[in-house]
Amino acid sequence: MTQIELVTLMLASYRRLVGRELVDPSWDIEQAAQWLAETAPFCVLAHEASADPRFIFANRTAQRCFEYSHDELIGLPSRLSAEAPNRAERQQLLESVSRQGFASGYRGLRIAKSGRRFWIEDVTVWNLIDEAGVCHGQAATYARWCDA
């Protein structure tokens, strides 16, 4: 899947499941994809739908938040974004999203590459579902985080 195809899927799934727009709906997909990846002031991450999902998207704000470069974060198992004791809570959230399509208002403890622990707050997680009903993974967005 190309970056444009992935962003198209993320935006359409967000609109359909959450009922809001993630970016300005007047933008063309190239403008939306570039802004979301490079300039958006909030974090957006996505992982694919395997048994041990790996990140397939992380915008620049999320990269700074987790202290990873793009190349380090893409392909990283998403479970590693939380420490082992917090992974069960994270997994429960993801299973709930799988059943319901999306969840909002989540707060969870995460860990950066340096070992810095931080809270992500008011997180929305949604399924990446195409027009044929196939789930390609899940995405998350949040605009607030603070050191633990």
Rank of each mutant, 00 (worst) to 15 (best):
Y14H: 15
L45F: 03
A12K: 15
V44P: 00
A37M: 10
Q31A: 14
A40V: 11
W27S: 07
L45P: 03
A33Y: 06
S13K: 10
H47N: 15
E38C: 13
Q31F: 01
R20H: 08
E21L: 02
L11W: 06
A32D: 03
A46Y: 10
A40L: 08
R20F: 13
Y14K: 01
Y14E: 09
G19Y: 07
P41R: 07
D24N: 15
H47F: 09
W27I: 03
V44E: 06
A40H: 11
A32V: 09
E38K: 12
V18G: 01
R15I: 00
A37K: 12
A40S: 13
V23W: 04
V18A: 01
A33D: 03
H47M: 10
A40F: 11
W35E: 09
E30W: 04
V44L: 05
S13R: 04
Q34D: 14
Y14S: 00
Y14V: 02
D24E: 14
W27C: 05
L36Q: 02
T39C: 00
V23G: 05
P25F: 08
A40K: 01
A37L: 12
A33F: 13
A37Q: 06
A32N: 02
L22E: 00
R16S: 15
D24K: 00
A33S: 15
S13L: 15
L11S: 05
L11M: 14
A12M: 09
R15Y: 09
T39L: 10
S13N: 11
E30S: 11
R15C: 04
Q34K: 11
V44Q: 06
